[in-house]
Design a protein around this nucleic acid. Sequence first.
DNA 1: CGGCATATTGAAGACCTTCAACACAAGTGG
DNA 2: CCACTTGTGTTGAAGGTCTTCAATATGCCG
Lengths: 236, 236
Amino acid sequence: MQNIYTPSYSVPCELCSIGSICLSIFKDDYSCAILNRKRLFEKNDIIAQAGEPLNNLLVIHSGCLKSYAVTSSGAEQITGFYLPGDILGFEAISSKKHYNSIQALTKTSVCEVRHEEFMSLMANCGQVRDVMVNLMSQEILNQQKLILMLSQKNAEERLASFIYLLYTRYALRGHVSLNIKLSVCRSDIANYLGLTIETISRIFTRLQQLNILAVKGKHILIKNLPELIKFSGELE
Amino acid sequence: MQNIYTPSYSVPCELCSIGSICLSIFKDDYSCAILNRKRLFEKNDIIAQAGEPLNNLLVIHSGCLKSYAVTSSGAEQITGFYLPGDILGFEAISSKKHYNSIQALTKTSVCEVRHEEFMSLMANCGQVRDVMVNLMSQEILNQQKLILMLSQKNAEERLASFIYLLYTRYALRGHVSLNIKLSVCRSDIANYLGLTIETISRIFTRLQQLNILAVKGKHILIKNLPELIKFSGELE
DNA sequence: CGGCATATTGAAGACCTTCAACACAAGTGG
DNA sequence: CCACTTGTGTTGAAGGTCTTCAATATGCCG
């Protein structure tokens, strides 16, 4: 059997969602008033609390974050997982307040983009404006796909989609590998997909029996990608 | 029993999502190169097909639209319903192609905003930029709420949320009324909420027995709003 | 009024959850 | 180093929710 372990991954600036901005505008200016590069967080660190004012948009350099809303009954609802190259904070721009809390799932390094200053930059620089509008548009499209997934797919399709989506998201950032390290625990996956941890566990078992995945704790090896895609249902 | 019929509603520009732009910039210029006001579509007209180039963003003046994706197996998946004052097309900005098809559910009048020209206007006009960024941010936040709903709520909560959300969306545009006219058929509601028409029907019956709603075909009267909110689950 | 699409209702079954027991890994202290 | 704890993941059995299939009812538009 192939080795299913994979080292932690950091995105090169060239492949980051705002890389074109950093490389052409911020360049080597490490003391930039807008960009604070590679701030480090430890596993389980809370990076922002819901309700706090929005100071920065966050861009993941390495590691993994989750964002979640807390219901009035105190339950935690995962709203997203963020991987190297991903940007988060768009949903807070309108109200200038964090709607979600954000927590590190592993040791994570994050580039902070000062929100106020960045918005002024958008006014003056067409390139920044285009990148931002495109990113927001893409985010809306991606969410729409997720909405379709949740409203139409059964448990097996959801989990298969989830794994396949992780694969494509890493690949998009230059990390093409059938080995996927879940920084995410089963209960977070379950919460995010609207299932229970027992169901997640059972489906992992089933996908292993079908020789589509090899699962060992948080390490996943995709053994049959075409079949995984088929199981994920056609909408991706 | 109160009358549960309500006349069709058109949004005044003051309360439309891009009203501030139209009123301050386009003003009374009806032959504007950017804005084509109040183009009329008949029920069931296809306004755009998935894959077509994005020429216009659409703003609903009166009536109702649905957008939907078509899967490789030919099934239709509703991605959204749009009411007077709503804007649609954001998800297509990045690729400059319609990802969804758009169809009129009733006789509908639409203000078309030329996409290319509007993007240039965004470059030159801070007010337009702010409005657009805010609208996109809000859209992302609203979608996130929908994602939570779909991943966490049961059938009853979904339908109650759906009705309550329609109520708040009309109210936002100045049409505060407990009478709601569904331009949407049961099967579209079911598709959108990830349920079957039978389940929708059963839950309508249940909510009527509980004296929360009065349902007569496409006309809904909210008879107990606080209870409806309670049934919709706490996340709104 | 008749015909067709849309909506409602009932019964059986599938899928996922719930509850409970158990397995496994990581970390702590004796 | 092992016993103990704790957190996390797996598995089984029973039950509930929603779907499926089928029959019936209602509404709409000629």
